[in-house]
Simulated scan of single mutants.
Amino acid sequence: MRITQLSSFAPSFLTGLLVALMMLAVFPQLRTSHQTAPEPNHSRLPDDGLSSSISYSEAVSKAGPSVVNIYARGVKILEKKQRWDPQFGTLTVVKKKPYEALGSGVIMREDGVILTNYHLLAGAGDVAVMLNDGREAPVSLIGIDVEADLAVLKLEMQKVKPIEIAVSKKAMIGDVVLAIGNPHGVGQTVTHGIISAKEVTDVNSKNPLQSYLQTDAAINQGNSGGALIDHRGRLLGINTFIDRNLGSVSFAIPSDRAIQTMEEILAGRGWLGFNAISVAPQMAKKHNLPVGLLIRKISPNGPADVSKLVPGDIITAIDQAPIVDPQTSMTHIAKSEPGTVIELTVWRQGRFSRITTEVGARPN
């Protein structure tokens, strides 16, 4: 009985097998219809730049040789007191302290001109520089701008590489920046961040009109005077200080302004000898004052002092040009050659007057 059933099933089985083989011959794609789909070949995917890691090594390699380490030694005056001595009369007692400072600088020209921060050199007697490649050389001080916190040095060495300059006013908030310097004397290092704000003022008590680039790239002790560069290795600013009260916010002098100051120091700058803050339209309206430059301090025996300007005066115009942008007006004075006579329109206790003064040479 079982043999009869098997023999009747065999012709049907053979017929089905023959039909299946014919279908595979006619439609070969059926052979893979139930196979597992192949793994995608990621190596052939187009490179959209997102999957690859981002590196700024080229920018650092380009700018690094133009950033130097600065070592300064000197004596700082901590305190001055006067006391009466029966034998010698009035004596001035000066309390001093020896100090050493570490910082950074940026090579700006092939002839060895270096820009750095003035506060690194205040009171320094000896200053030395070490290049990126380990070479050491003495430097000479060309000039300073205390209010801008900038100093110009001259490196006594040949074959130095100046940094490439970017136009800092074209930088945008959110642009990537790198800070190169010598933090804590450990050698040249790089920190990374973005531009957080532009044209930040009122953060430097010695010069409230000075504007800065604000960044979250760390600028620690020793980074001062170093380079803030863009992603192409071009100078955007001179790293100056960090305000830890604001959460480690760092500030750099924009390259446009730093270069202008450097050129003025090299050429000889005009100077009136006063420290001022801006009276902006909003402040002027609130306090019923004119827009202009409010004098806070007068340098003894300077041009402003000789011309009888006093703290509290507000300069509203220079050579009859109204003061709209305080920084531009200060630049106009700085670019004036010593000996140039200019006319100031001055507001004092509710009255306007015109005062003629002669531009002096900024003391170094």
Rank of each mutant, 00 (worst) to 15 (best):
L78D: 06
A218Y: 07
V60C: 07
E263K: 12
Q82V: 13
E156C: 08
V177I: 10
G222M: 03
V68K: 12
N275D: 04
E263T: 01
Y118I: 07
I180Q: 00
L78S: 11
S329H: 00
T116Q: 07
M22L: 15
G89P: 05
K95R: 15
Q349K: 14
N239K: 04
H34T: 14
G112H: 10
I3N: 08
T116E: 04
Q221I: 08
G185A: 05
D256N: 15
I173N: 04
Q82F: 08
E263Q: 08
G268Y: 06
P28V: 11
L235W: 05
V249E: 05
P65W: 02
P363N: 01
S299Y: 01
Q158L: 09
I242S: 04
A171H: 00
N364L: 01
T340F: 00
Q221S: 10
N182K: 10
I333G: 02
N364S: 03
S52T: 14
A72N: 05
K161G: 11
A128Q: 12
V203E: 06
P303W: 07
A317C: 09
V160G: 03
I277Y: 01
S12G: 13
P46I: 15
S53T: 13
S52R: 14
T345N: 04
F27C: 12
P254C: 12
M130N: 10
S278W: 05
Q29L: 03
I242G: 03
S336L: 01
P86E: 14
P38Y: 00
E164H: 10
Q210R: 04
K97E: 14
V60P: 10
M172R: 15
N182S: 11
D111R: 03
L289R: 02
Y212A: 09
T356P: 13
G292D: 01
H287W: 10
L30V: 05
I173Q: 05
H332Y: 05
R362M: 12
G16C: 15
D175N: 12
L344T: 02
S33T: 13
Q29W: 11
